[in-house]
Computed example of a mutant assay.
Amino acid sequence: MKHLILVGLLLLTSPSLFAQSSQSIFPQTPGMVSYTYRNSFKNNVAATLDTIKALGITDMEFSNLFGKTAAELRKLLDERGMRCSSFGVGYPDLMNKLPEVGQNAKTLGAQYVRVAWVPHDGAFTLDAAKKTVADFNRFGKQLYDDFGLKFCYHNHGYEFEKHENGTLFDYIVQNTDPKYVSFELDILWTVFPGQDPAALLNKYGNRFQLMHLKDLRKGIVGNLSGGTPVENDVALGTGQIDLRAVLKAAQKAGVKHYYIEDESPSIATQVPQSIAYLKGLK
């Protein structure tokens, strides 16, 4: 009898095994990358935002203004109770129009300015990585000092060329100033070149502030090109990425914003499937 009472008290005062097993791995609502709906946004920005909002998503990462001014886009977001937390731009804009980039990001209400591609010819080299580090430190400092914004780099696969005991991606992370330069982990463009996103998250922790949630079709063997047909983007949980391990590592690392990105032509079916998969992860 005493044994049964003790067991009962333990169940009352600590999480049960059942509760632990049913705990959600991904309790938050994901955001959305505008590129997922790029074809729809080109035709009608307002209607596309309505479509995304109907999915329960209110956090956006825009990498295109789709013919609007930043103020016009912000107004459409505000009217729908939506927000833009990250603003993606191209490398030339950072090099040549950084004050305009900063002002647009502030107008949109973004906290982050993100770039996803470093221009280079052929294989990414150590010299290219050294220039990238110098540029990133400069971009990040100016965006932080002048606009209070955080600069993020989104990996695209080519940065994982071998270098010493690691890769050129390691070199970039280790030689950029954590005060001014953070990272957005695109998990497809981590797995495609043969890397482990969970291991990177464990290694660099809160250097990763943002994440693109994607999955890579089973059977696809990647490379360091930074490119694969868009049809190889599949619904979350149906591809080859160990999303449970990735999301557990991301939660531990303290990733701030997660965005679904699906480059495929099948977003009408795949995006709802991905959202349902995230909700059901226990």
Rank of each mutant, 00 (worst) to 15 (best):
Q240D: 07
Y37W: 14
L9Q: 09
V45W: 03
V181H: 00
E159M: 09
I220E: 13
F136I: 03
S182W: 05
K179V: 13
G222S: 03
G148A: 07
A129Y: 04
E61M: 10
V173D: 02
G205W: 06
M95G: 01
Y204F: 12
F183S: 01
I57S: 05
S40G: 05
G254V: 07
N96C: 04
T13H: 07
V271Q: 06
R114T: 15
V7D: 11
Y180G: 04
P265N: 13
G140Y: 04
A70W: 04
T132F: 13
G88M: 08
K141S: 12
I52P: 00
M60Y: 05
E100V: 15
P197H: 04
L201P: 00
A116G: 15
Y35Q: 03
S86Y: 04
I260D: 01
D50I: 04
L17F: 13
K141R: 15
D145I: 07
G239D: 12
D196H: 03
A198F: 07
H156T: 05
G122I: 12
H3I: 15
T107N: 01
R74Y: 08
N232H: 15
V89K: 01
S274N: 10
D262E: 14
R38E: 09
A54I: 03
A250L: 06
K256A: 14
L281N: 02
D242H: 05
S40N: 13
L210E: 05
T228L: 12
L224E: 04
P265M: 11
A123N: 11
H154P: 00
A128V: 11
E100R: 08
P30Y: 08
K162F: 10
V45S: 03
Q23E: 14
L98N: 00
L188C: 11
V246D: 00
Y258R: 03
Q270R: 14
D233F: 15
K256D: 12
D78Y: 04
Q270L: 12
T29H: 04
H154I: 09
N137E: 12
G67A: 09
L9K: 07
E100W: 07
Q273Y: 08
V101L: 07
V101T: 06
Q23S: 13
V101C: 06
V271S: 06
Y112C: 07
R38T: 10
D186C: 06
D59R: 11
A123V: 15
E161Y: 02
R38W: 11
H156Q: 11
E100G: 05
F66S: 02
R138M: 15
L224T: 06
P178S: 11
L73T: 01
R38A: 11
M95V: 15
G31S: 07
E164P: 01
F183K: 00
E72I: 10
G166Y: 08
K141C: 09
K75Q: 15
P193L: 05
K130P: 02
Y180N: 09
L10H: 01
Q251M: 12
T51R: 12
T125K: 08
K2A: 14
K131N: 13
A105W: 08
V255D: 00
E231V: 14
D177C: 03
F124Q: 00
K214Y: 10
L216P: 00
T190I: 08
W117G: 01
G81L: 09
I5G: 02
K214D: 12
A268F: 10
H3F: 14
N175Y: 10
